[in-house]
Structures are given as structure tokens and as C-alpha cells.
């Protein structure tokens, strides 16, 4: 469904993403992980169309999408969330979700029905008519997902949707994501919360220093020596290089 070929992204002299290739199949939940500064967020942003790749190409459903604007990619069925929820501050929850729904229908009636469905699905049904600014952090993250879902995507990109959530909220979010997969959606995750990723992903790709160092089933990846080194530092040396903090 999504094919990333040899993507490199440079910022001046810094190589943030180094010749990464990755294929995501339809209906898959794939996690993109790595220590701080590994280039996850950069790769995510290149896929989402925030900035162009320096080299390489990205195809979605056979169409080349790198260099396209985010709204064009969204039209093709690839939608994203933001790590720090970007709420529409002057709107109600319902209106915010309708912004996404208007992509497929200009009719308010249709868009509203779609928004209600989505709000119900993410557990914001009872908040539908409240201003977005009254939501908690966890609810805002759900609103991010809801706005994305309202665009009727074939695949969604989730950026650290677990960050800042407590245990129960993480569990609820996991339930939500698996229900989306059951609904036929392809999901690409960028995530710090490893246990969450382990629980839900069909496949995990690990980035370190901009390069992909592992790609496979969660259990395989977690036993991979390179991955352990990247996260915990080489065992022969001291234990200084602890796994990075909590936010990218």
C-alpha cells in the first residue's frame, strides 16, 4: 500500500534519514520506533508531505506522493495526526471532525452524519457539541484521530498518539487502533511507548541514526542485537547510554 524507496532527508549537512526503504502492506499495523534523534519524526514528516525528501521516492497506492502537498495526499487516502494535537480552537468537537468529513462530501448533512459516526467510534460522542478547548489531552489525541478518520482514509499515520497518556488511556487508544484495523485500515505508528507497540503491531521497523537497522515481527525485532545496542548501548561498555527520554 505504501512504498518508501531509498528515502534520504538532509538538513544542511545533517543526514536525518539515510536511504530508508520500507513497505507497508494493506491492512497492516506497522510501528516505526527508534531512540531519540533516530529520524522517526523526520521520516514521518516526509511521508506526510510536511517537507520533501532529498532523495528517493514514496508511493501510495501506486501513486508517487513525495513532494505532494499534505491535502493532496489526504485526498488520495493517506491521512496524518500530529504529535502535539492541533485543535481548531474556535470550533466544537463536531465541527472539527466535519472539517475532515467535508473532503468527501460538501453536504453538511452528510458530513455531520459521518462526523457523528467517527466521534462515536473514537469515544467522543458525548463531547460532540462542546468546544474543542474543553477537551483533556487524551481526548484531544482522540480528536486528532477522529479528524483523520473522517477523511475516509485507506491508511493513517499516527504520531506518538500514546505520549502523555496514562495507563488506562493508552489501553483505550490501543483498543481504538485495533478496532480501526479490524475495519480494514492500514496504520503506521511512530511511537515511543514500546510496550504499546509490541502489543499491537504486526510488524516493527527500527531506525537508528537515520538508518533502518531492523524490520520484522515484534518478537524478532526485540531480540535483535543491533536494536538492543541502539536502545541500551553496547553491553561491553558502561550502561551510560540509557534509552532516551520520553519525547522526541
Amino acid at each position: 500500500m505504501l512504498q518508501i524507496d531509498n528515502v534520504t532527508k538532509r538538513f544542511g549537512g545533517l543526514v536525518a534519514v539515510d536511504a530508508v526503504s520500507l513497505t507497508v502492506n494493506e491492512g497492516e499495523i506497522i510501528g516505526l520506533i527508534g531512540p531519540n534523534g533516530a529520524g522517526k519524526t523526520t521520516l514521518y514528516n516526509v511521508i506526510a508531505g510536511t517537507f520533501p525528501a532529498t532523495q528517493g521516492s514514496i508511493h501510495f497506492r501506486g501513486q508517487r506522493i513525495d513532494g505532494k502537498r499534505a491535502d493532496e495526499t489526504c485526498m488520495l487516502g493517506l491521512a496524518r495526526t500530529f504529535q502535539i494535537p492541533q485543535v481548531f480552537g474556535s470550533m466544537t468537537v463536531g465541527d472539527s471532525i466535519m472539517v475532515g468529513a467535508f473532503l468527501r462530501s460538501r453536504s453538511r448533512r452528510v458530513a455531520r452524519r459521518r462526523a457523528e459516526e467517527v466521534a462515536e467510534a473514537v469515544g467522543l460522542g458525548h463531547r460532540f457539541d462542546l468546544p474543542t478547548t474543553s477537551l483533556t489531552t487524551a481526548e484531544r489525541k482522540r480528536l486528532e484521530v477522529a479528524r483523520t478518520l473522517a477523511t475516509d482514509p485507506g491508511m493513517i499515520l499516527l504520531d506518538e498518539v500514546m505520549a502523555g497518556l496514562n495507563h488506562t488511556e493508552v489501553q483505550l487508544m490501543l483498543d481504538l487502533v485495533s478496532s480501526l484495523r479490524d475495519g480494514g485500515l492500514t496504520v503506521l505508528f511512530v511511537e515511543h511507548n514500546l510496550s504499546a507497540v509490541m502489543q499491537i503491531c504486526d510488524r516493527i521497523a527500527v531506525l537508528d541514526h537515520g538508518a533502518k537497522i531492523a524490520d520484522g515481527l515484534p518478537t524478532e525485532v526485540m531480540e535483535n542485537r543491533e536494536v538492543i545496542t541502539a536502545y541500551l548501548g553496547a553491553p561491553a561498555e558502561d550502561g551510560e547510554n540509557q534509552a532516551g527520554g520520553d519525547h522526541a
Partner: peptide, 16 residues
């Protein structure tokens, strides 16, 4: 209004 409130989020929700 979406553009006014957050350009990034509007574009990500498919608003040209």
C-alpha cells in the same frame, strides 16, 4: 475557520 485556527491541521485534514 479551520485555516484560521490551525493551518497545519487544516491541510492535514485535506483542506487545499
Amino acid at each position: 475557520r479551520a485555516i484560521r485556527d490551525s493551518e497545519e491541521a487544516a491541510v492535514a485534514a485535506g483542506v487545499p
